[in-house]
Design a protein around this nucleic acid. Structure first.
Length: 702
DNA sequence: TTCGGTAGCGCC
DNA sequence: AAAGGGCGCTACCGAA
């Protein structure tokens, strides 16, 4: 018998599997059955709970377990949802395929949603189905809000953005089940409907609700999705094979199980430490609001948390007569933090405008922190009440970016502030009797192009990272190059051993900070043009700085040029090939063209480096997970070592505080740096151990 | 009421 | 024509 391929798709009562949302429709498409298979279950409108008969769940699970190949669009979502059925499924991850992984591999810059893919790969337009069911659902929600409640049928629990079971938001899809429930429980509210073929009008008094489209429209919408998924999968496999990309695809597929595991392990956040932070910000925020509103002389009645409201624009630009030196992307006067800093330097201290701007800046900074923490509270679930520990299950998307970076959402675990005075990592940390360890690659995105291009001075810098005067710091090397007038006197006075710390001490928030910004601008692709000061020069505060560094690091520039040339010619750059996966081929990253048909020159090297860096962390995660599994096997039934977060070049490991845990971390660090040999780039990692919270820790020497 | 665009800001 | 890359979240605002 040939291979049985089964595509699976679910419709659910919301996106938040960990907050009790469940599938109410499961559809299958198979390469061996003529008919598609659909399962649909009733939803209790008062509780949003799905009633799945155990026997039916059993049959669904058996069908899944019997297939040779299981195909999903975003597998871990459906899998996690199916896990909420009353019968447990024994997932064999080696059978699971995901068309978002192949879609990314075939065109990393394209949208990976099913509708876009169906259009591109199988020339099918799914839009009309979606439009029809959306329109109906919107109408159904209106009926619930306006009519149903008045008829005392109990308050139907329709989706709202602040619904506790729907922290990701209550979009219309979370209420698709309403259609059938209205048809069954409250058919008198079904809207008028005319059969387009017979022109007969459906009459609630005369006709069977089962003949009204709302009775079955959700299923009708769901069916084409699994069908499309199956066909897209088959098309993708053909393409991958002919392009020789199957080896990379198979490696990427290994991540599915791991990503799912990381999400389910979750991240601990502590209520008490969170409260400490919020309690410190709230009174200061109130003071700032009072000052701003007072000084606006009636123009403001509230201070916008972000963005520029009309009232704020009026106050700053008209009332105070300030002029922004910077424009937003759409050409409006910007009022971001950089502009606020600029105003503060210009204005007379203690003048009304100065106090206003300062208060606005302080307000925004604190509100950002408070809002982040509100977000965490919205998503968290009880974990260890006594210690105040809660758990988050951020969603990780390994195909969410145009490069190989992962994205994280609901909530985003990758943008938790670590700024002085606003270090929200303080609220995060290990549960009782556990440790966290942050292990990050040192200068990962600088090492890659430096070694690849053979840039001797940079290589020397990284090889001798314990040596004065730079101690492996690219920023300090740049500093000595761009600001010799500041560097040389300090070098003379304090000697090569101490000049670095002296520079950082004296110029921490001024020239050293600008130097760092300039360095990042170059790293992220700043371009030198004839008649404009480059972004890097602006950041460095020295005209010509960018050119100086470009001349000094000519090999890097050559690599940049070759990436640009490749991208202009083919529309793709590739990551450095992984010797263990496919020594011939790296991961192709699509560089979108502008509407004038060219790739922006800022993009190719960036994608190449960022993509390679993320390939490295991806392999590291697989290897670290394998290693931790061997440790965990010896600890059956006890708490486990696990990867809990990935922040692009950093992994956070959690584990029990047992004897020898530091040796385990040393081994993890060793594994992580060993990945470099697969791409020919020597890598180093640093490791910080956190026993109480993520903000404070001590370095582990490795 | 819902939605998309804009702005600002956190991370690497 | 313009050139600092990649994300997600929230608030504001005007249009449908």
């Amino acid at each position: 018998m040939s291979v049985h391929i089964l595509a699976v798709d679910t419709e659910t009562t919301g996106l938040d599997a960990y907050h009790g949302n469940s599938p109410f429709i499961v559809t299958f498409a198979s390469n061996q059955e003529d008919q598609q298979d659909i399962w649909s279950w009733r939803v209790n409108p008062l509780t949003r709970e799905v009633k799945v008969p155990k026997l039916e769940a059993k049959e669904v699970i058996r069908k899944i377990e019997k297939a040779d190949i299981l195909v999903f669009q975003n597998a871990k979502f459906d899998i996690r949802m199916i896990d909420n059925l009353p019968v447990k499924c024994n997932w064999d991850w080696s059978k699971i395929h995901d068309i978002s992984i192949s879609a990314h591999l075939l065109g990393s810059a394209q949208n990976k949603d099913l509708t876009t893919q169906a259009l591109r790969w199988i020339n099918t337009n799914l839009d009309p189905y979606e439009k029809a069911v959306k329109e109906a659902t919107d109408k159904a929600r209106r009926i619930c809000r306006t009519k149903l409640f008045k008829e005392e049928k109990g308050e139907w629990d329709i989706a709202k953005d602040d619904h506790p079971k729907l922290p990701s938001g209550g979009g219309w899809k979370a209420d698709m089940w309403l259609l059938e429930e209205i048809a069954i429980r409250a058919p008198e509210f079904l809207p008028e409907w005319r059969d387009p073929s017979t022109f007969q009008v459906w009459d609630p008094k005369r006709d069977d609700p089962k003949d009204h489209p709302w009775f079955s429209i959700a299923e009708y919408y769901a069916l084409p999705d699994s069908d499309a998924t199956l066909l897209i999968f088959q098309e993708h496999q053909r393409r991958l094979e002919s392009l020789g990309l199957l080896k990379i695809y198979e490696k990427r597929r290994e991540l599915l199980r791991l990503v799912s595991k990381i999400e389910s392990t979750g991240v601990i956040v502590n209520r008490f430490r969170r409260d400490e932070l919020v309690d410190a910000y709230v009174p200061e925020v109130e003071k700032c609001i009072k000052r701003c509103i007072g000084l606006s002389e009636g123009r403001l009645d509230k201070v916008p948390i972000q963005g520029v409201s009309n009232a704020l624009r009026d106050t700053v630009f008209d009332h105070f007569g300030l002029e922004s030196p910077k424009k937003t992307p759409t050409g409006n006067p910007s009022l971001d933090k950089e502009v606020l800093d600029h105003f503060l330097l210009e204005l007379r201290p203690n003048s009304a405008a100065h106090v206003f701007i300062k208060s606005l800046k302080d307000f925004r900074k604190r509100m950002t922190a408070i809002n982040y923490m509100k977000g965490y509270e919205k998503f968290w679930l009880p974990y260890d009440e006594e210690n105040g520990d809660f758990i988050l299950h951020p969603s990780l998307n390994m195909t969410g970016t145009t490069t190989l970076r992962w994205s994280s959402s609901n909530p985003n675990e990758q943008n938790i502030s670590k700024q002085e005075g606003f270090n929200l990592r303080y609220a995060f940390g290990p549960p009782k009797e556990h440790f966290w360890a942050s292990i990050d690659y040192e200068n990962l995105e600088l090492r890659i192009p430096a070694y690849e291009s053979g840039e001797e001075e940079l290589i020397a810098l990284f090889e001798r990272s314990n040596d004065p005067p730079f101690y492996g710091s690219n920023h300090l090397l740049n500093f000595s190059t761009i600001y010799p007038d500041l560097w040389d006197p300090l070098l003379e006075k304090y000697g090569p051993e101490n000049v670095a710390s002296e520079v950082k001490k004296r110029y921490k928030s001024t020239w050293y900070q600008r130097c760092k910004n300039g360095g990042f601008a170059i790293q992220y692709g700043s371009v030198i043009t004839e008649n404009k000061v480059s972004t890097a020069d602006k950041a460095f505060g020295r005209i010509g700085a960018h050119q100086t560094l470009k001349d000094k690091f000519a090999q890097l520039d050559k690599l940049n040029q070759s990436c640009i040339e490749m991208a202009q010619k083919t529309g793709f750059v590739h990551t450095i090939p992984d010797k263990e996966v496919d020594p011939e081929k790296g991961y192709p990253l699509e560089c979108k063209r502008t509407r004038w048909g060219k790739v922006k020159p800022t993009i190719p090297l960036n994608y190449h480096v960022q993509g390679t860096a993320c390939w490295v962390i991806m392999i590291a995660m697989l290897m670290v997970d394998d290693y931790l599994k061997t440790i965990n096997r010896k600890r059956k039934g006890k708490s486990q070592f696990a990867i809990v977060m990935q922040i692009h070049d950093e992994l956070v490991i959690q584990g029990p505080l047992i004897d020898g845990y530091e040796d385990i971390l040393k081994e993890v660090s060793k594994i992580m740096s060993s990945v470099g040999s697969r791409i020919g780039i020597p890598l180093r990692v640093g490791c910080d151990v956190h026993l109480n919270n993520w903000a404070s820790g001590k370095e582990l020497s490795i």
